Amino acid sequence: MQLSREQILGAYRQMKVIREFEERLHNEIQKGEIAGFTHLYSGQEAAAVGVCEHLSDGDTIISTHRGHGHCIAKGCDVKGMMKEIYGSSEGLCKGKGGSMHIADVGKGMLGANGIVGAGAPIAVGAAITAKLNGKGEVAIAFSGDGACNQGTTFEAMNMAVVLKVPCIFLFENNHYSEHTGVDYAVGTAGDIASRAEAFGMKVWRANGCDFFAVYETMRDVLEHVRAGNGPAAVELDTERFFGHFEGDPQRYRGPGELDRLRAERDCLLAFRSRVEEAKLIDVTDLDAIDAEVLALIDEAVDEARAAPRATAADVLTDVYIDY
């Protein structure tokens, strides 16, 4: 599938928005502007965007505790997200979700989740709905490498195969489950995709630091799943540039590891290099997007600081559904 110039620029913009959103959060948290745990997605932008560029609002995703990138890639409002993280009543979830529980059902973003592996069974439920609706829509469970060790994930994969539902189990292998290396923690020599394959579904692997590799892989995966062939799994080899959480000292990293990753496995640098070398996009167009995105993030932070906060009177609203 040939990407148009507009699609290439759009994908770069989405990745740049995620990167600058996260880098700005890192700075604001260091200054004490934002309370609570935050898990940043910097480094993994090509995975979220390469997947979500194929999706419509009718396709659903379930995210993780490291969910900002998934939200932005799925089309959630950036300013609404920033307000949510700042605890504003004008946030996407009225300030009640915060960093780890942002959702926007209208965009097909069914929620981030602080419990490792909890998204997989929710995605199977969404996939059952998609199968019954018969519109060719899919549900995707984003997970990290740590989730592949969870029983909830195993049960969800088995159920998806048994029911033959359009569910995609997408593992972003950034090589660390919190502070534990994947080669130590995953018994199949760090190979996550082979575990999913054992349940009877087709699996794909791709370089998660290469937008074009992710995009092309997901084209094939979605064609397979939308055709009624049941679930599939994808393992994307990627990197995270910050700690498991903000404040993580990262003593488990090797000497110079982070510097090497930012130099050699930065998906944004790789994207720029590829499109410039192929003469697909002029560097000035990318620079213009960079400036536009920085202005957007500045506006988002300014508006979030000034936005009203949730009050005690809001505690019991949006908790129960009236039938």
Rank of each mutant, 00 (worst) to 15 (best):
N207T: 04
I72V: 08
Y252T: 01
D210V: 05
I34T: 03
T317G: 06
H68R: 09
P255D: 11
Y320K: 04
G87E: 03
V49D: 05
T60V: 04
L268N: 07
A300R: 06
I122L: 07
R251M: 13
G146K: 09
D259R: 06
G50T: 11
G146D: 02
G228I: 07
F199D: 09
S177G: 08
M81D: 11
V283E: 15
E178I: 14
M159S: 09
A300N: 01
M201P: 05
D314I: 03
L3W: 06
E216V: 13
H70C: 05
G134T: 08
Q7I: 01
I85E: 10
E299G: 02
A120Y: 12
V162Q: 10
F142S: 00
C209I: 02
G43Q: 05
M157Y: 02
R24V: 03
D210R: 10
I122M: 07
Q250S: 11
G111F: 00
E45P: 03
Q150P: 01
S273L: 10
R205D: 10
M81I: 12
G87P: 13
E178Q: 13
L40K: 03
Q14T: 15
D322N: 15
A112N: 09
H54D: 08
M159C: 08
G32D: 04
L269I: 09
C93N: 13
A35K: 14
A310F: 03
C148T: 15
K79T: 12
V234E: 04
I85P: 13
R274G: 07
G80K: 00
F242W: 13
C93K: 12
A73T: 02
A232H: 01
A196F: 04
D285A: 14
H244I: 04
I102T: 09
F171K: 12
C76R: 02
R251C: 11
G134F: 15
F21E: 09
G69W: 06
H65C: 04
F241I: 10
E28A: 12
F242R: 14
L236N: 03
G114Y: 13
A35Y: 14
I62A: 01
M157E: 10
A156H: 04
V165R: 07
G114S: 10
N207Y: 08
G50K: 01
A11N: 11
R240S: 00
T129G: 12
F245L: 03
V275R: 08
T238L: 02
A147W: 12
A300V: 07
N27A: 15
D59W: 06
L316F: 15
K83L: 10
V225D: 01
G256K: 09
L163T: 11
V221H: 05
A310R: 10
E155G: 02
A291C: 12
L132V: 14
A118E: 08
K135N: 12
F242P: 10
Q250R: 10
A130P: 00
D145Y: 01
G181D: 15
A313R: 02
G151I: 03
G254H: 13
E299I: 02
G75V: 01
E246C: 09
A198Q: 07
